[in-house]
């Protein structure tokens, strides 16, 4: 017993139970209501899109890391989160090969080429969605619920506005995860309760959209419940890596996302602006972080 070598390591010698994997698992759990809602609204085709995105994201992460002889990080579940988020940003009718291409863009181009988890400057799922939107405009705006005989457009693109109840339950056209406000709010509440995300970004982003659309003569309720706003506010604008980590930084970020979203929706040529807003603010994140850094207790100004 005496001859056993002792472990010598720097303090602290106890660590919290929280891990990257646990955080990602929480995000996955928070997305389960959306998964259920998407299958109910869009049928089993939705499940197929999610499955394809998740499997291909995990595969590309594993494959790229194998090729680069890096440590495999599939176990941290972040690729699964990216896959689910990407799927939730796609219409149910998307050709599956396009979903695979989107996963390739998200994982390899946006995430791994910049150094993998924690190093990418743009949100992988959002950027992949934008790439798909620009590449395959037709299939990316072919929104159909399983009850529609013909394709219907997302309410934002000029179709008839559904009732508020329908918007809340999500029984209308749109991307897989974005239509059912109820499911998104359930997931968002779970993330807030588990302290995976903080209130700053979603609250400020949604408040900005409500206020600005009211000032511009739009209906705040319709603006809040349509398009990818709720999904973006709770699940994409709260991504750790690509958004500011300071409290005030999150407030600035949320405000910027909200304002740009409304401006694109009202004045821009695209019906929806959430993805562009978040991507644009992703690019500003390093600056926002420097501007909003906490001043240390008792720290001299100069």
């Amino acid at each position: 017993m005496e001859n056993e070598l002792l472990v010598v390591s720097p303090s602290p010698h106890i660590r919290s139970k929280n891990t990257t994997q646990r955080i990602m698992l929480d995000v996955i759990l928070a997305m389960l209501p959306m998964l259920v809602a998407s299958v109910v609204i869009f049928g089993f085709r939705a499940l197929a899109v999610v499955a394809v995105c998740v499997v291909s994201c995990a595969f590309f992460e594993w494959g790229f890391e194998k090729i680069c002889k890096r440590e495999t990080t599939v176990g941290d579940l972040s690729a699964v989160v990216t896959g689910m988020l990407l799927a939730f940003n796609l219409p149910a009718s998307i050709p599956l090969w396009q979903a695979v291409f989107g996963s390739l863009v998200a994982i390899v181009v946006v995430k791994q080429l910049f150094g993998g988890i924690g190093k990418n400057f743009a949100n992988p799922a959002i950027t992949a969605r934008i790439v798909l939107l620009l590449s395959f405009a037709g299939s990316m705006s072919d929104f159909a619920t399983k009850n529609d005989a013909i394709s219907s457009a997302t309410p934002l693109s000029g179709g008839e506005m559904p009732t508020v109840l329908s918007l809340f339950l999500g029984t209308h056209g749109g991307s897989l995860g974005e239509t059912c406000a109820l499911a998104i709010l359930l997931g968002g509440a779970y993330l807030l309760l588990r302290r995976v995300i903080s209130w700053h970004t979603p609250v400020v982003m949604l408040a900005t959209v409500a206020l600005l659309s009211f000032l511009l003569g739009e209906s705040p309720v319709e603006q809040l419940l349509t398009g990818g706003l709720l999904l973006g506010a709770f699940f994409m604008a709260t991504d750790y890596t690509t958004t500011p980590s300071t409290g005030w930084g999150k407030i600035v970020f949320g405000f910027g996302c909200g304002a740009i979203t409304v401006l694109i929706r009202v004045f821009g040529s695209y019906p929806e602006g959430v993805s562009f807003a978040i991507l644009f603010m992703n690019i500003l994140t390093p600056y926002i972080e420097i501007w909003t850094r906490r001043r240390p207790l008792g720290g001299a100004k100069k």
């Binding site: 390591s9 720097p10 660590r15 929280n18 993998g116 409290g247 240390p296």
Partner: peptide, 26 residues
């Protein structure tokens, strides 16, 4: 069980270290 330090993985920029630093450091 308690002796071995856990394995380090990449920073995911969650910001918890900043939130909880008593002296407000980053």
């Amino acid at each position: 069980k308690e002796a071995m330090p856990p394995r380090e993985t990449a920073c995911i920029r969650c910001g918890k270290c900043m939130d909880l630093c008593p002296l407000g450091l980053s």
